[in-house]
Design a protein around this nucleic acid. Structure first.
Lengths: 247, 247
DNA sequence: CGTACCGTTGAGCAGGCTCAACCGCTGTGG
DNA sequence: CCACAGCGGTTGAGCCTGCTCAACGGTACG
């Protein structure tokens, strides 16, 4: 299979590699709209103290939906997807999780989604009860987690805007822009697309075929060039942004 | 206008009326899938101490998107909607907020959505910085807020499942079921629908006309009876649940 | 009585879905 | 070594349903 065969995630910084990390946009006023590291160095070491580093290959399942939620994961390198298989047999990808994201949100003691690696990943795994202990001992850490979850909530709400579009090309453009922002701009100006076309389809709510046709439309109209299946380049930034914003 | 002319929200309990309150499903194991009150009585009094009670009429705007985020609101009675007007002129309703919900999540010091009352509401308003002060003094309160935001995140993710459906009737059925769960079952077995058809459309991602036609289809197939514009009754529970689950 | 707003209905269009066939690559086993 | 299965991706044909546009109805309000 394709995934894992072409250095995706290789641009991850050493910092992200070496300790649990959480990124988010703050509540408070800030001039930039930048995502910042929430955890102080000591906090990261504290979490490191109760965490185990795991390196997982593509397609490894971190956990399954509805199984008892024992662990919380900090994504450190690579990308995972969180999805649910619906009664109809369709698969809904709820989120892609990147380095500095938190995975393992439970409800009533059970995981909500199944989570699988789509690239080789490094995660830090910690027992939920141990993390809760740590949160009790370090109240300021609670606040950081609050920020992080609030950030994810806003991201999730933003994601629903994608669904309000009917046109496939527009949805795909918004998705690509999201990828560009989340995964951090590549030095060479390309967008890294770690997931399969079918994962994209299940995420943005289109059929697989529509995703492919939308890619062609983006390419034909000169907005985006797909250098290969997993790399795209924005050719006409202004028109691209227009399309992606024109909800 | 219609809203506010027929006792919606009248079933709100006295408890909800009299102090800030937060409801959520816990992370941890619990036999029931019930939503529980997160705050202890002393905590609610503490928040009450820094909050102002406001009673607002239908269509009052609590705040506007992109304005500086000074306040956090606890919905105590009634229903508000959070929405964004998109560049295209379309309006996306991001969420309906019910009693025991939290309103006013900011990003970089600015509100993300515009929030408006769709029924007469009672809210408790507190300055963001004062609430943060309180959170610093009472670490366990932070955890309650963490639970609440996590709950809203899960709700938001669940909401995206609605969008994965193509059929209007199915989307509407899921929406009605959500209303039934959120607003608490009425004693008489009816579902209270506080918002306008057009708000529903903007929330579940359909055109206004499609919402109306979907209502007709639900009615014709004998699943649901619409007693008036703002009250529905599930006639055939099993088939209704089947439709609402058959994503 | 006119206006505004919400809701309703109909006609016709368009874009996304489904189904089906096919390609190219990979890994496997005879 | 090659045949084959499996998987991801691609393309085409035709259907279907939700959207758009437009006209109209009812109710509240000035």
């Amino acid at each position: 299979m394709h995934a894992g065969t072409h250095g995706r995630g290789a641009h991850t910084t050493a910092q992200q590699e070496h300790a649990p990390s959480l990124n988010a946009m703050p509540f408070g006023l800030s001039s930039t709209r930048a995502v910042v590291q929430l955890l102080t160095h000591p906090q990261r070491l504290q979490i490191l103290g109760i965490a185990t580093q795991l390196r997982l290959t593509t397609r490894t399942t971190l956990y399954r939906a509805d199984s008892p939620a024992e662990w919380i994961f900090f994504v450190s390198r690579g990308v995972v997807k969180a999805f649910r298989d619906l009664p109809s047999g369709k698969r809904r990808v709820m989120a892609f999780l990147f380095p500095s994201d938190l995975v393992g949100l439970a409800e009533c003691g059970r995981y909500v989604n199944t989570v699988q690696a789509i690239t080789p990943v490094t995660v830090y795994r910690t027992r939920l009860d141990q993390l809760m202990e740590l949160l009790k001992r370090d109240p300021s850490l609670k606040l950081q987690f609050l920020y992080k979850i609030a950030h994810e909530l806003r991201e999730s709400l933003r994601q629903t805007i994608v669904f309000s579009r009917r046109d496939a090309a527009g949805r795909l453009a918004m998705f690509l822009r999201m990828l560009e922002q989340r995964a951090g701009d590549q030095k060479d100006g390309t967008i890294d697309i770690p997931m399969s076309r079918s994962d994209i389809a299940n995420f943005i709510g289109l059929s697989l075929e529509s995703v492919i046709r939308a890619s062609h439309r983006l390419e034909e109209s000169g907005l985006v060039a797909f250098e290969d299946l997993h790399r795209a380049r924005v050719l006409h930034r202004r028109r691209f942004e227009e399309l992606a914003s024109a909800v």
